[in-house]
Amino acid sequence: MSDEETFDASAPNVIDLRGVSKTYGRGEAEVRALDRIDLTIRRGEFTAVMGPSGSGKSTAMNIIGCLDQPTAGSYRFNGVEVGRLDRKQRALLRRHYIGFVFQGFNLLARTSAVENVELPLIYRGLRQSERRPLALKALERVGLAGRAGHTPSELSGGQQQRVAIARAIVTDPAVLLADEPTGNLDTRTSEEIMDLLVDLNTSKGITVLMVTHEPEMAGYARRVVEFLDGRIASDSAVLEAA
């Protein structure tokens, strides 16, 4: 897979997990974080993943984002078997198709908002003159046009999360993965962030997968998947189909 090569965009399922397990440790100390889960996400869906802490929802999210690898099972992204990709190829997959938003924002400290947003573009090999307008546009998209020069410590939590979202969407990813994006924010700010995510989903057609433990936030999603003890306990899409 090269930088230019694209995945099969005609595959209806962006994400397709079959019998995926993840265990930590060995022998007596073995912990089964994910237990043979099956999950399919279709292009353009807005899905909320819920469940108590330790239920495996974040682990599933990390595997989907290619930040972590499953111990067993098959994971196809846009029809491509991720298990067959090496480190380099997984990095390229993240670079071209996935945007991340974390609970802890994960911005580079002492680095201005626009430089943070530019970061993924640097690794895509864009020149400064090409990067800057794209980064500024992404910041404008999340409503931070006037804060490009501010460093994370000069921004509020909500603003930092907006910068993180701008960084995630600046590459026009197919999928946006958000792990508890409102976990560190107050209710009003959370609602603003959720409106932004919904807008990105509807207007740009980005597939959004969001982990949360707050039912109000899950309410913004069209589909809710609930995890419990490493398994999927319920899936609203399956219920509707039934």
Binding site: F100, N106, R167
Partner: peptide
């Protein structure tokens, strides 16, 4: 190390 993690997550190669 966290910075390295961020860079890797947004698509940097290990070599970069």
């Amino acid at each position: 190390t966290r910075e390295i993690g961020i860079r890797l997550a947004i698509g940097a190669q290990e070599s970069q």
